[in-house]
């Protein structure tokens, strides 16, 4: 919703910017500043800036945050128009005041959109995925309950070490620094579900829930996983985003597929095109499908 709103603002910027570039004189007349030297040049520059807003708002994945750029632009415009109104009289003054009012209204809308956008970007990253595994529920549950097994199929994890009493130490590869946190199991029903979350104050705020139910017709086990990563602090937010990749949903689905391979076939299935078996981005960085050199 917020994003749709932001896109609409983007289109507005596009229209305004185009008008200012194509017909700068008309715009300056409308604002009552056509008597100032260099007014058309300024109008053109402002038009260029509007196009930049448009590009950001129409092109970005999470456009709402970029509405801040419009808020900044609005502030600039308000200053210019305010001065113009103060220095003028008659029709020109009236026109400048009208323009001032319009810009003030728009900037309020921009600010609302931008604030919502920021709130959204700071919200936790939540992903969910589901898979059916052709093994009895007990067995699937037990494998997951050994949390140290998780890195064998979850690409973003380096290691999980059990500390006893439901506590564990998790390590993940970040883009610059490695992330590390301690987690505790907060709910557990043998064969049914496991829920965990990071211990407060250990760096990353994260929680997970996995549930196991009998597959339809008694065939296999349905595994449902929900993961949540909090975004406290800019650096951490960036690290978590990088760790989870561009498409976190896709990544968790791939993780579960590898989990299924391990459960059903004994290990992660490898091909020469993606030989590492479980490294992030491996699907993007495919090798040619030809044997891997080295030993032969």
């Amino acid at each position: 919703m917020t994003d749709k709103f932001a896109r609409a603002l983007g289109w507005t910027s596009l229209a305004l910017g185009t008008a200012q570039l194509v017909a700068p004189r008309a715009v300056t007349r409308l604002c009552g500043v056509d008597d100032a030297p260099g007014a058309t040049t300024v109008a053109r520059l402002v038009g260029g800036r509007e196009l930049l807003h448009a590009a950001l708002l129409l092109g970005a994945k999470d456009p709402a945050q970029w509405a801040w750029t419009r808020v900044a632009g609005d502030t600039m415009d308000l200053g210019v128009l305010g001065r113009a109104a103060a220095n003028r009289t008659g029709t020109r003054r009236t026109r400048a005041l009208c323009a001032l009012g319009a810009v003030a209204g728009i900037s309020a809308i921009d600010a609302v959109c931008a604030r919502r956008g920021t709130a959204k970007a700071k919200g936790p990253l939540k992903v969910h995925a589901s898979i059916t595994i052709n093994k009895p529920r007990e067995e699937v549950y037990r494998f997951w309950r050994e949390l140290e097994n998780l890195p064998s199929f979850m690409v973003h994890l380096d290691s999980v070490r059990s500390l006893g009493q439901g506590r564990s130490r998790w390590k993940a590869k970040g883009p610059v620094v490695d992330l590390e946190w301690e987690a505790e199991i907060i709910d557990e029903r043998v064969g049914d579900l496991i829920a965990w979350r990071s211990v407060p104050g250990t760096g990353v705020s994260t929680a997970g829930l996995v549930s196991f139910t009998d597959g339809p017709g008694g065939r296999g086990t349905v595994v449902d996983v929900s993961l949540e990563y909090g975004m406290h602090g800019r650096e951490l937010a960036a690290a978590v985003a990088r760790m989870c990749g561009e498409h976190p949903e896709q990544q968790i689905r791939d993780d579960l597929r590898r989990f299924k391979q391990v459960m059903e076939t004994g290990e992660v299935v490898r091909s020469e095109g993606s030989p590492e078996g479980h490294r992030a981005l491996r699907q993007l960085r495919q090798r040619p499908a030809q044997p891997i050199g080295g030993r032969a």
Binding site: T265, G266, R270, S271, E272, P291, I292, G294, A296
Partner: peptide, 11 residues
Amino acid sequence: DVPDPQILNAR
């Protein structure tokens, strides 16, 4: 000429 294949999985 390409490298000879090698075992990647136990099966």
